[in-house]
Simulated assay, not measured.
Amino acid sequence: MNDAASEFSSRLDTLEASVAHQEKMLAELNEVVTLQWRKIDVLERLVAQLCEELQNIAPQREAPEPPPPHY
């Protein structure tokens, strides 16, 4: 029975170490995903701002160009 208890204890230690490692990896991955979402939010705001600026500039570009000075 002592060998069985020792083997059980060893297996339990291995499982606990594995779970601890997975929890650490999960926390690190969560941090990466959180940072990526923050960057995505910033980029989405920038794209929206640039689209708005382009829409404001578009009417100016559609106006006819004045003739060159030599006409």
Rank of each mutant, 00 (worst) to 15 (best):
V19S: 04
L54C: 06
L15P: 01
V47Q: 13
N56P: 01
Q55A: 09
Q55I: 00
L50N: 10
L12W: 06
A20K: 11
Q60F: 10
D3K: 11
N56A: 11
M1N: 10
P68R: 15
P68E: 15
R61C: 08
L54P: 00
R38K: 15
H70D: 15
E53P: 01
V19G: 00
T14N: 14
R45H: 12
L50F: 04
A48Y: 03
D3N: 09
K24P: 00
H21A: 05
S10G: 03
K39E: 14
L46S: 09
Q60R: 11
M25P: 00
A5R: 12
V19K: 12
L46D: 12
A4V: 06
V32G: 00
M25Y: 04
V33M: 06
V42I: 12
A27K: 07
I57V: 11
L50C: 03
Q22Y: 07
L15H: 10
A48I: 01
Q55W: 06
K39C: 03
T34Y: 02
E52C: 07
V42S: 13
P64Q: 08
L54M: 12
W37V: 03
S10T: 03
S9H: 07
P64D: 14
S18H: 13
E65A: 14
Q36Y: 05
E7L: 09
Q55G: 05
D41V: 01
N56S: 10
E52D: 15
N56G: 13
E53N: 14
Q55R: 10
L29S: 02
C51Y: 11
R38A: 13
A17P: 01
E28P: 00
V19L: 15
A4F: 07
A27G: 01
P66M: 10
P67R: 13
V19E: 10
I40H: 04
R11M: 08
K39G: 05
C51D: 15
E65K: 12
P67E: 12
P69H: 10
